[in-house]
Computed example of a mutant assay.
Amino acid sequence: MSPVLPSRPRAVVFDLDGTLVDSVADVADALAAVMREAGIHPLSEAEVRGLMGHGAPGLLRGALRLRQCDLGEAEWMTRRFLDRYAAAPAVRSAAYPGAVDAMAALAAAGIPVGICTNKAACTARAVLRALGFAPHLGAVVGGDSGHGMKPDPAPLLACIAALGAVPEETVYLGDHRVDIDTARAAGVRVLAVPFGYGDIAALEPDGILADYAALAGMLGLAVAEQR
C-alpha cells in the first residue's frame, strides 16, 4: 500500500471502467454485435481490454485499426455501439472487490463522491445503479455531458464543482494514463489502481491503491477517526 496522502480530501472522484467496475465483457459483447453487423470479425475480450479508456469513439477507431478496416465506418458504428451497449450495460460487468463498501464509507464520512468517465452519462448511471454505487454518489459526469472527454481536464473540473469542492482538495482515482493526465491537467491528486485496463508500471500517480479495503487509510480517514 502507498503511504497516507498528506491531507484529507474534501471530495473524491472515481473513474468508472477499470477503476470501480470491470466492464469489458459487456463492452466486448456490444462491440462484437456491431462488428458482425458491419461484416468484420469481432475482437476478443483481451483485444477490447487493450482499447479501453478512450470512450466509444476511441474504442471503435481502435477496433477498426486492429482489423485494418476503413476508419470512415467509425461514425455510424459508434452510434450503433452506443445504442447496443446502453440497452445492456451491466449484464456481465462486476464491481471490483470492496469498491461499493469503500464508496459507502466515504459518503458516510461526509465526503462527497463523484464519477468522471468517458462513458455516456446515462449508461454510466445505469451501471452504477445496477452494481450498487448510485446511493452514494453526488455527481456523475460522462463523455457526453458537455465538458469534453478525458484527458481534457474540463469534465473532471466540472464534476468537482458539482460536488462543491475545489481541485486542490480533491483526490481522483483511475486506472489508465488518460486518468493520470486528466488529474495532472486539473491540478488534482491522483491514485491509481493496478487491476484495471492501464499499464500501472507506466503511470506516475501520487499513490497506488492495491485494495479498496485500504482506501480510507490512504486518504487519512482512519487516522482522523482515531483521534
Rank of each mutant, 00 (worst) to 15 (best):
M1I: 05
P6E: 13
P6V: 10
P6K: 08
S7T: 14
P9I: 13
R10Y: 14
D15T: 07
D17V: 01
G18I: 01
D22F: 09
A25L: 14
D26T: 08
D29M: 13
D29N: 14
A32T: 05
A33W: 12
M35K: 03
E37L: 14
E45A: 03
E45K: 04
A46D: 13
G50F: 04
G50H: 04
M52D: 06
A56G: 08
G58R: 02
G58A: 04
G62W: 07
A63N: 06
L64N: 14
L71A: 13
E73T: 06
A74S: 14
E75F: 13
W76T: 14
W76C: 10
M77N: 01
T78M: 11
R80A: 13
D83S: 10
Y85A: 00
A86M: 05
P89N: 06
P89M: 08
A94R: 15
A94Q: 14
A95Y: 05
Y96A: 02
Y96F: 15
G98S: 03
V100H: 04
V100M: 05
A102I: 05
A102L: 07
A105C: 11
A107Y: 12
A108E: 15
A108R: 15
A109S: 14
A109T: 12
G110A: 11
I111S: 03
V113L: 05
C116F: 07
A121N: 01
A121V: 09
A121S: 07
A121H: 02
L128Y: 00
A130V: 01
A130C: 03
A130N: 01
G132K: 03
F133M: 04
F133W: 02
F133H: 02
L137H: 06
G138R: 02
V140K: 00
V141F: 05
G143T: 11
D144R: 00
S145L: 04
G148E: 15
G148V: 15
M149F: 09
K150V: 09
P151K: 02
D152L: 10
D152N: 13
P153L: 03
A154M: 07
P155W: 00
I160M: 07
L163H: 04
G164Q: 12
A165N: 03
A165F: 08
A165E: 01
V166A: 09
E168N: 13
T170L: 02
V171M: 06
V171Q: 06
V171I: 13
L173K: 04
G174R: 01
G174I: 10
D179T: 11
R184K: 15
V188L: 06
R189W: 10
R189H: 12
L191P: 00
V193P: 02
V193S: 06
P194W: 14
G196V: 01
D199H: 14
A201M: 08
L203R: 10
P205S: 09
L209N: 03
L209C: 08
D211C: 10
G217S: 08
G217N: 06
G217Y: 07
M218I: 09
M218Y: 02
L219I: 12
L219N: 03
V223P: 06
V223A: 15
A224V: 13
E225W: 11
R227L: 09
